[in-house]
Design a protein around this nucleic acid. Structure first.
Length: 356
DNA sequence: GCCCCACAAAGCACGACAGA
DNA sequence: TCTGTCGTGCTTTGTGGGGC
């Protein structure tokens, strides 16, 4: 039984509206559904919300209050059943899948799109589907061709991995897919992979630092970047500004900067109010800079770039780690000699090899 | 019978944001 | 800085058809 069908059953018995949590508890207690996730009430709530949103007046559910749902027409649902048996919203087998009218498979279409439009960069599966349809390669009568496309790509990758073959597609996370033939190989690729691991570990080390240690590290980075007259203001309660300094460019341009440092967890992105707070703490002729170990929400980025206000520069955790490594802070650079054949010593003509 | 293809629903994790 | 709510979308799963 699906979550929605189980919810109908519970609401029908209750004959009143119920909170999402109560619906979930009663569904589980009645054995109508066995949740496998960590937040079953979130799943139930999301299911009912999406059903109402998708089907509108045709949805069997109606939201009566915050996180509280009821049946839209409980009498109709109940009377439609015989012998006190509930009538599920959907019964019977699923409709037969629509017929694909083209000779090209989804994966072949995806390969063509990536080769033609990818420019050696991963594309989102929705864009791939859109371009495949626009290009006339893909003609599907299904309702969600993009879901089919993604499922096909993932299945194709897993199938080839299972066989021990090199998959033709590569997943890049968040729905992005590229061609494996674009992946660089060899020593340079391995070095980049290693450095990626070091970036990750350095970021973890930043998170383990005390606020004081972190600010000292940022001050060291600013000094390496060309800042002068660096002064820690954290303990002086200076409106949230942690470090002040002057960015000197070529001993000609001098820009006063007020820096706020935020050592936040990866998931806690900096929000717009923080940007507003920094802007409000700026002194005369000062520019603002926020440095964080996490990232910035889109709202914070918009706020920082407001054209009619003092611009605030933003540095997220990824940029911070890259800069630290560029300036050899927190890492040790290992130099090694890599030799390649000199083209100038190559023979001018290719001499065919003999049979021996 | 097995494998591949195509599709859609289910279920879950995650992100944004507001409020505490 | 954490928690709860709401919304989005990624991933898995089940089903059926077709080819070999």
């Amino acid at each position: 039984m699906s979550v929605k069908t189980a919810a109908i059953e519970v609401l029908r018995k209750a004959q009143s509206s119920l909170h999402a949590k109560a619906i979930t508890e009663q569904i589980v207690a009645a054995g109508l559904w066995q949740p496998s996730g960590k937040t079953p009430e979130a799943t139930v709530s999301a299911q009912l919300y999406s059903d109402i949103k998708k089907n509108g007046d045709k949805s069997p559910f109606v939201k009566v209050a915050h996180q509280t749902f009821a049946l839209r027409e409980p009498v109709c649902v109940a009377t439609a059943a015989t012998k006190d048996e509930p009538v599920p919203v959907k019964v019977g087998k699923k409709p037969s899948p629509p017929v694909v009218k083209t000779g090209l498979s989804f994966t072949t279409c995806a390969q063509k799109v990536l080769e033609q439009f990818g420019n050696k960069k991963p594309m989102h599966y929705r864009v791939i589907t859109e371009k495949a349809i626009a290009g006339g390669w893909l003609q599907s009568s299904g309702k969600t061709p993009e879901a089919t496309m993604y499922a096909q790509l993932i299945t194709d990758i897993k199938r080839q991995q299972k066989r021990g073959e090199r998959p033709r597609f590569v997943q890049h996370g968040r729905g992005y897919v590229g061609l494996s033939q674009w992946m660089r190989q060899g020593l340079a690729f391995q070095i980049e992979q290693h450095n990626e691991q070091i970036r990750k570990k350095l970021r973890e080390r930043l998170m383990a630092m005390t606020p004081g240690e972190f600010e000292e590290l940022v001050a060291e980075l600013l000094a390496e970047m060309g800042f002068d007259m660096i002064e820690a203001t954290r303990l002086s309660g200076d409106g949230g500004i942690d470090v002040r300094g002057t960015l000197v460019v070529g001993d000609v341009v001098r820009i006063k900067m007020a820096v706020q440092v935020k050592k936040w967890k990866l998931k806690n992105n900096i929000q717009a109010p923080v940007v507003q707070q920094v802007r409000g703490s700026l002194g005369a002729h000062e520019h603002g800079l926020i440095i964080t170990t996490s990232d910035f929400s889109p709202g914070a980025a918009r706020e920082a770039a407001q054209a009619d206000k003092t611009p605030i520069a933003l540095m997220n955790g990824e940029q911070l780690v890259v800069l630290l490594m560029e300036h050899d802070i927190g890492v040790r650079r290992i130099a090694s000699d890599l030799f390649e054949l000199d083209d100038e010593t190559a023979p001018s003509e290719v001499v065919p090899l003999g049979d021996d």
